[in-house]
């Protein structure tokens, strides 16, 4: 293991993040606050409670997940797309490192940033609603796993993308709908039966459900299923990344 290379990439990427820390934080914190105002205050005043939890508190795990997923993807996809775009990837390809080390550096940094923002949002939400966390360890585990697996997914998108438009395409067309329909703002049990069944094909449902369980002890699907789903998603992404580096797809002719 070339630990020196991993930490170099990691530190370099995080430095980019902290250079623009204000922008990096303002946007997610602002949009989360807006969600609280719109969903929590406006709609929440009519919905009151979901399974005994105030609606404002109920949407907190979903909001964090929403942000963390989109942040992980955009951080990681941009992180590897940028060197491709400006040409500095030559240095990565010529360095004495293997794919695992590149991934650990880039994905690790992207996941760290997303985690950081997720925690900021959690702290922000304490200003709006009262929440207790029933299973803190599980909460952290779900959060970290989500950051890592979505950062892996973003990494793949970044390697695949041939333009900035494509870089936005997958998050916009696939991830955002899945996340919005994944139960961020509602419980799956609130849906008509047909839509409940359809929702079960949405992997994000399992993640949000598990994460929400860690907060309130209630979930749409069994926690074990959630853990299994996220582990499977991580493994799938890892496999894809391994294949990418083995074949040199889109990076090494």
């Amino acid at each position: 293991m070339n630990w020196s290379a991993i930490s170099s990439i990691y530190v370099f990427e995080l430095a980019r993040f902290f250079r623009t820390i204000a922008q990096s934080l303002v946007s997610p914190v602002l949009s989360t606050s807006l969600y609280f105002v719109v969903f929590g205050a406006a709609i929440g005043s009519r919905i009151e409670e979901v399974d005994g939890v105030s609606y404002g508190a109920f949407i907190v795990p979903g909001l964090i997940m929403l942000t963390v997923m989109t942040q992980s993807i955009s951080n990681a996809s941009f992180g590897i797309y940028f060197p491709k775009f400006i040409g500095t990837i030559y240095e990565l390809l010529s360095a004495p490192i293997n794919f695992l080390e590149i991934v650990m550096g880039y994905v690790g940094a992207a996941a760290t940033k997303a985690l950081f923002i997720g925690i900021i949002i959690l702290i922000t939400s304490f200003f709006f609603v009262e929440i207790q966390i029933a299973h803190p360890v599980a909460m952290v585990l779900f959060l970290v796993l989500t950051c890592v697996s979505f950062a892996l997914f973003g990494f793949i998108i970044g390697i695949w993308a041939g333009s900035f438009e494509q870089l936005q395409l997958v998050p916009l067309l696939i991830v955002t709908p899945l996340v919005f329909l994944g139960g961020s703002f509602y419980s799956i049990s609130m849906l008509p039966p047909v839509w409940q069944t359809i929702s079960m094909f949405n992997p994000v449902v399992y993640l949000i459900s598990g994460f929400r369980w860690a907060f309130f002890g209630l979930s749409d699907v069994p926690v074990a299923t959630s853990l299994f789903a996220i582990a499977g998603f991580t493994a799938l992404c890892l496999g894809a990344v391994w294949w990418i580096f083995k074949t040199g797809w889109r990076i090494r002719q």
């Binding site: 070339n2 290379a5 170099s8 990439i9 400006i86 030559y90």
Partner: peptide, 25 residues
């Protein structure tokens, strides 16, 4: 390399340190 490829916003000394670390030193 033939074409100049550098991170525009990075500082000179940091990119050089980065390269050294990347190569395992």
């Amino acid at each position: 390399p033939q074409d100049i490829a550098l991170e525009p916003f990075e500082r000179v000394i940091n990119t050089v340190r980065f390269s050294r670390g990347l190569f395992g030193k």
